[in-house]
Simulated assay, not measured.
Amino acid sequence: MRGAAALLLAASVLLIAAADPDPKTETTHVVKDGETLGGIANRAEMPRVLIIEANGLKAPYALRLGQKLVIPRRRIHTVKDGETGFGIAMDYGVPWSAIATASGIDPKAAVKPGQKLTVPTLAKPPVTASPLAAALPAALTSPSATPSEEPAKLADTPAPAFRWPVDGKVRRGFVAKQGDKPWHDGIDVIAPRGTAVRAAAAGKVIFAGDGPREYGKTVILFHSGRWTTTYSYLDQITIKDGETVGAGERIGFNGQTGLASEPQLHFEVRRNRVPLDPAKYLPKAKKP
C-alpha cells in the first residue's frame, strides 16, 4: 500500500509540473488569469522587450487569458571576420532589427569580429498574413532551450517559382566568382525611378534598410528552405523587418542608391547564402 501511495504521489507531482512548467525554462507560456507581461518576463528572467519582439505584441501590451506566448530562449552568435548584420540575419532567418534589439545594440551600427549577438526565436506569423506562414520551416519558429553557436537547421527545398521583381532590360548579368576575376552576384535590371519593385516569391522580410555602401537601400526576403532574394539600389522601401509578403507584393520603389549609375534594380537569388544566376530561376530569362 505504501508503495502504491508513493507512486500516486509521484504521479501527482509530475502532473502538476507538466501543467505548470518552470517559467525559467519553458519555451511557450499560456497566460493565466491576472498575469501581466512584466510579471511573466520577470519569472522567465529575460527583458520584457524580447517577449514583445518574439510575439509581435503591440502597445499597450495587454494580455488575454489563454493567450500563448513564445518565450524566446536565445541562441548566441559570435561575429566572425567579414560578417555583416544582414548576412547574419540571412543565416538565421531572423530580422536584423530583432537581433539588434535582443543584443541591445543600434541596428545601424556595424558589427565587429568577436562580438556576441543574441538571436531570438520569433513566433510564427499569422496564417492570414501570407502564404509563407504555413510553409515556414519549424527551425525558424521552434524555441531553443540552450544557447547555440550554430544557425537554425533548415530543410533543403526546391527553389520557389520566382517571378521577375520588375520589368526592364537586363543591363548586367550574373558572373560567378572565380579567383580574383571580377564577379557579379546578381543581375541589374533597368527601370524608371519610382517603378514598383515586387517580391519574386512569397517570403519573410529579414532585412529592410541601408545595406552595405555598394548596395544602397536593400530588402532581403527569406523563402522556404534555404532560399533568399535580395533587392538593392531601391529609392524607397515600403515594408519592414519581420513582415511577410506574398508573391508579387510591392516591397519598394526602384531607384539609384548605392553604386547604381542610373535607375535600376540589383536582384540576387541565393541558396545557403551562395549567389546563383537569377536567370536560371526566372521565367523567360532576359539577356544583357
Results as ranks from 00 to 15, higher is better:
3 G>Y: 08
4 A>G: 08
8 L>M: 11
8 L>K: 15
14 L>G: 02
16 I>A: 12
18 A>P: 03
19 A>M: 09
21 P>A: 07
24 K>S: 14
29 H>D: 09
32 K>L: 12
36 T>Q: 00
36 T>H: 00
38 G>L: 05
40 I>Q: 08
47 P>L: 04
51 I>P: 00
55 N>L: 06
60 P>H: 00
62 A>H: 07
63 L>V: 02
66 G>F: 10
67 Q>R: 05
68 K>T: 08
73 R>W: 05
77 H>R: 06
82 G>C: 11
83 E>T: 02
87 G>P: 06
90 M>Q: 14
91 D>M: 15
91 D>T: 12
93 G>P: 05
93 G>R: 12
98 A>F: 08
102 A>N: 07
103 S>K: 10
105 I>M: 14
110 A>R: 09
110 A>K: 15
112 K>Q: 15
113 P>R: 08
113 P>S: 12
113 P>L: 04
114 G>I: 00
118 T>V: 15
119 V>M: 08
125 P>C: 05
129 A>L: 12
137 P>Y: 01
138 A>F: 05
139 A>V: 13
140 L>I: 03
141 T>W: 08
142 S>E: 11
143 P>A: 03
146 T>K: 15
147 P>V: 14
150 E>Q: 13
154 L>G: 07
156 D>E: 13
162 F>E: 06
163 R>A: 11
164 W>E: 07
164 W>L: 07
166 V>A: 13
168 G>A: 03
173 G>K: 05
178 Q>L: 13
181 K>P: 11
182 P>Y: 11
185 D>L: 03
186 G>D: 03
187 I>V: 15
192 P>H: 01
197 V>E: 03
198 R>W: 00
201 A>T: 01
203 G>H: 04
206 I>Q: 02
206 I>D: 00
210 D>I: 13
216 G>D: 06
218 T>S: 13
220 I>M: 05
220 I>L: 09
220 I>N: 02
220 I>G: 03
221 L>P: 12
228 T>L: 02
228 T>Q: 09
229 T>K: 04
232 S>T: 00
235 D>Q: 14
238 T>G: 04
242 G>K: 09
242 G>V: 04
244 T>S: 11
246 G>V: 01
248 G>F: 04
250 R>F: 00
252 G>P: 03
255 G>V: 01
259 L>M: 13
259 L>Q: 07
260 A>Q: 01
260 A>Y: 00
261 S>W: 03
261 S>Y: 02
262 E>M: 10
262 E>S: 14
264 Q>N: 11
266 H>C: 04
267 F>W: 04
273 R>S: 10
275 P>N: 09
276 L>R: 08
278 P>H: 00
280 K>T: 08
287 K>P: 01
287 K>W: 07
